[in-house]
Design a protein around this nucleic acid. Structure first.
Lengths: 194, 194
DNA sequence: GGTCTAATTCAACGTCCGATGAATTCTACA
DNA sequence: TGTAGAATTCATCGGACGTTGAATTAGACC
């Protein structure tokens, strides 16, 4: 039984709450995760969560900060031109979901997007602030449609691999996925579009 | 205030509950939808839901019966061979999500898959009982990986169009989507795979 | 007409949830 | 050393949820 009152020394409590929150939201989405569960995982009283973050929603917002800078991504994609862009995109996706913390953020957003418009907007934001500008800058025709199709392919991959657990997708090595999907993305960039 | 007791005449109450349930699950997923809300939408006391279906979970199972027969779909895809298979797949997907009831069932499963392993299994089932057998039967190499990639593309499309609301995907006419995506699916079927 | 069964509502229980406000303990700084 | 403020817990509130059991009303069949 932890007695009440301030703890001696520096306790990174706020950070521990954030870490637990990312794990919980990534596992169960916004609605499925509970403030009490997050507090328990952080070894802390639920009231502390509100003390630091005000509300469950604000905690969510704080915990799903995008694990990369959209402009940086856009620049990275543009650099190198249209050639090999599909592969660069896949490599970036794979490198992001290879980091546990980034993956948690991504899954937290994706799992919450099914019920929370804000999370859905965050997902759209990745498309509109990175993918679309990059493709526009390269002067491809029908940039909106192409960017959306690429976005939906990557989202589908993440969904299949990490949410639904489709065996060939969970079993494939990252390199194999890159090799398999990159040409498809490349065709999505270059094929004639209606 | 509806007084208690049996209603005169034939009241399709059970069916009305099912209809409301599909709408609610499609809109909010299993956890987000509430028995009380479904009952309210059906103009009925919440206890009736349990009288007819036993539990929220059994109601969910009853309401998400797949809107098509997997074997029939597999046969439809095989008939006609590898040529134009991508287009047939897209046409089928578009025709399914064009029917409101089917779309509700699909979205109910997809939205619940983020937290409910059973729904995730139902989603995998579409892949394993229709897509994969069809592709296998056509003698393509790497059928598991190809089927999974096609599945993830279609799931991503549904997610983008109906859950996240990606503008180019919501705005595109079904025919335009078929024309844009079919060649990509076809490449996924025929491109060399690692 | 009497009786059994199905349909329907009502009232309630127990649980979990997010949130609040007060009390307690420590740190920082004058 | 005294005191303001930050960190932490505790007890609790009000609400929503799934579920249950009893009571009420209608149809079906003898």
């Amino acid at each position: 039984m932890a007695r009440s009152g301030r703890r001696p020394g520096r306790t990174g409590t706020r950070d521990r709450i954030l870490v637990s929150a990312r794990a919980a939201f990534g596992e169960s989405g916004f609605e499925g995760a509970t403030v009490r569960g997050i507090a328990r995982a952080a070894g802390v009283d639920p009231a502390l969560v509100h003390h630091y973050f005000g509300s469950k929603e604000q905690l969510f917002v704080a915990s799903i900060e995008l694990p990369f800078d959209p402009q940086h991504l856009a620049a990275l994609l543009v650099r190198g031109g249209l050639d090999g862009l599909g592969e660069r995109m896949m490599r970036f996706a794979v490198s992001i979901w290879g980091q546990p913390r980034s993956l948690q953020v991504l899954l937290g957003i994706a799992r919450s997007a099914t019920s929370d418009p804000r999370a859905a907007e965050a997902l759209r934001g990745i498309l509109e602030s990175s993918l679309l500008p990059a493709i526009r800058e390269l002067g491809v025709d029908q940039p909106e449609l192409r960017a959306s199709l690429i976005w939906s392919q990557v989202v589908g991959l993440v969904f299949g691999r990490f949410v639904v657990g489709v065996t060939p997708l969970t079993a494939a090595a990252p390199e194999q996925l890159v090799a398999a999907v990159a040409p498809i993305l490349q065709l999505t960039l270059t094929a004639p579009m209606p």
